[in-house]
Design a protein around this nucleic acid. Structure first.
Lengths: 119, 119
DNA sequence: TTGCCATACCTCGAACTTTGAGGTAGAAGC
DNA sequence: GCTTCTACCTCAAAGTTCGAGGTATGGCAA
């Protein structure tokens, strides 16, 4: 089947989840997060800068993340960290993700028997 | 946090997966599939007709589903079933979904240690 | 009979997300 | 000097779901 060029299946909202997860462990900067997501998922998932940077900016605007600039080896970095609001957002997002996975798992395993319910 | 009005997190592509799954067990008509998805997921997920009908039409156009009209109790129905191509598509979709879930699970569980890899 | 609800089909503008190319700038290595 | 990587960033296009709105019909209570 033809491969989609954008909006891959099952992944909408996943970048935000993973950004919050990684930042909940330690502060990171943008470029590092792009690599970090790829590594943290065993190289199974990859989101480009065009996805990650706008999300970082949106989450900071929402007060979910906070940032500070730092210079390392002559290079400027914007290091992000999770705010208390962000920690709460992460917990909610993980719960929502688990709920979705459980529901799909239920449907894939064939229960409950829809045929008999609808009959 | 404000609730989104469309494109809910983690659910893009899920309607197609569930439609294929339900139809792999038995032929169903559109309206029945809408109810069937809600029931099959333990009422955790719900996709409206505005989502389901366009997908049915697209999958039929792709040769993934086939349909026939039948009349029951004076009402017309379009009953869909999975084609061999559709069975293949379902297997691929379930595999893709499991891969995504595994990758996110890996990231949520903290392995591998990204900090040491990137240090 | 009439009105309402469920059944059964369907469309589409709007909302929302991700892609990937393109951009500036600087450090490191050759 | 040139190439590659690092580090930041933007945005039009691609792609999905929502939910209101539409037609039509059967069943049922008043």
């Amino acid at each position: 089947m033809t491969r989609k060029r954008t909006n891959p299946d099952f992944l909408n909202g996943v970048p935000e989840l993973l950004i919050l997860q990684l930042l909940s462990r330690q502060p990171m900067y943008g470029y590092e997060l792009v690599q970090g997501i790829r590594l943290a998922t065993g190289e199974a998932l990859e989101f480009g800068e065009g996805c990650v940077y706008p999300i970082l900016h949106r989450l900071e605007a929402d007060g979910v993340l906070a940032s500070r600039r730092e210079t390392v080896g002559g290079r400027q970095r914007v290091v992000y960290r999770v705010t208390p609001k962000g920690s709460k957002r992460l917990i909610e997002a993980v719960g929502a993700w688990r709920s979705v996975v459980g529901a799909i798992q239920t449907a894939l395993q064939g229960g409950p028997d829809v045929g008999s319910i609808l009959a």
